[in-house]
């Protein structure tokens, strides 16, 4: 039994992750800027068209100093897309938005036209001083599924953009599960489940009993009151067909 659940003209809200370079300035700032100028002189245009995030978590500076730093960087044609690790007191509405939850990635390799290999390595080190520097791109050894053996409690959120989530237990009202792939719940889904969060329209949601507050696949979502009431309390599979969430009662 298949039911059409979604209005064809719903709004898509998607999550997507991008690789940005992270600048972590250190004090005193004028000396750091000098080093940056030096670096820019050696590999011109490195920061052009690159998303740059400013990490100020190690930096204890005031609002005015942060503003000055952003202006100094702008004068060097480095545009900041976001600020990481800032206290709310340091930020003003005019500044780039605060960002959090960044995941470390491999160091950024500079593709300079000139064969200045030594300078390249230095650039990479300054741009992203990650503890383990690797020459080759890091092979991502991330498991493609996450299994949780206990109920997901109200207020908890399980986020796994890398793949599928399996939950052996229920998802409580007020809890949320967000997966890049599919979501399997061997229990009652009372909270929110969002599958295919990084743009995977083949993702599905399975649950032993549907009592969900909200379900979403690839950005198409459905609130509890928009769901067909005959689905409630049943074992259900949800999948996406075009722009429409389809629901099948499983057994």
């Amino acid at each position: 039994m298949t039911k059409v659940l979604t209005d064809a003209r719903s709004i898509r809200i998607k999550g997507r992750s991008f690789l940005a370079v992270v600048l972590s300035p250190d004090l005193p700032l004028d000396q750091w800027l000098e080093r940056l100028d030096d670096l820019a002189a050696r590999s011109a245009g490195f920061f052009l068209d690159r998303p740059v995030v400013l990490d100020v978590s190690e930096l204890s500076i005031k609002k005015a100093e942060l503003k000055q730093l952003i202006d100094d960087l702008a004068a060097r044609k480095v545009r900041i897309m976001g600020i990481e690790g800032a206290r709310p007191s340091q930020l003003t509405p005019e500044m780039p938005p605060a960002m959090k939850g960044g995941k470390p990635a491999s160091d950024v390799e500079v593709t300079a036209q000139e064969p200045e290999t030594e300078a390249e390595a230095e650039v990479a080190a300054v741009v992203s001083p990650a503890p383990q520097r690797q020459e080759a791109p890091q092979v991502r050894a991330i498991p493609q599924s996450l299994t949780i053996d206990e109920p997901v409690r109200s207020g908890q959120s399980i986020i796994f953009p890398e793949g599928d989530i399996t939950i052996v237990g229920s998802v409580a009202s007020g809890a949320e599960v967000i997966a890049g792939g599919s979501i399997h719940i061997y229990g009652t889904l009372r909270g929110r489940a969002m599958a295919g969060s990084i743009g995977n329209s083949n993702a599905r949601i399975f649950c032993r009993r549907l009592e969900a507050e909200l379900i979403a696949i690839d950005g198409i979502y459905k609130m509890a009151e928009d769901m067909d009431s005959s689905l409630r309390g049943h074992a259900v599979q949800l999948s996406l067909e075009g722009e429409t969430i389809m629901a099948d009662i499983l057994f």
């Binding site: 109200s154 207020g155 908890q156 409580a172």
Partner: peptide, 12 residues
């Protein structure tokens, strides 16, 4: 019940 569920999550 929902608040208790939240507390259980915190206990864990």
């Amino acid at each position: 019940v929902r608040d208790s569920d939240r507390i259980i999550g915190m206990l864990d």
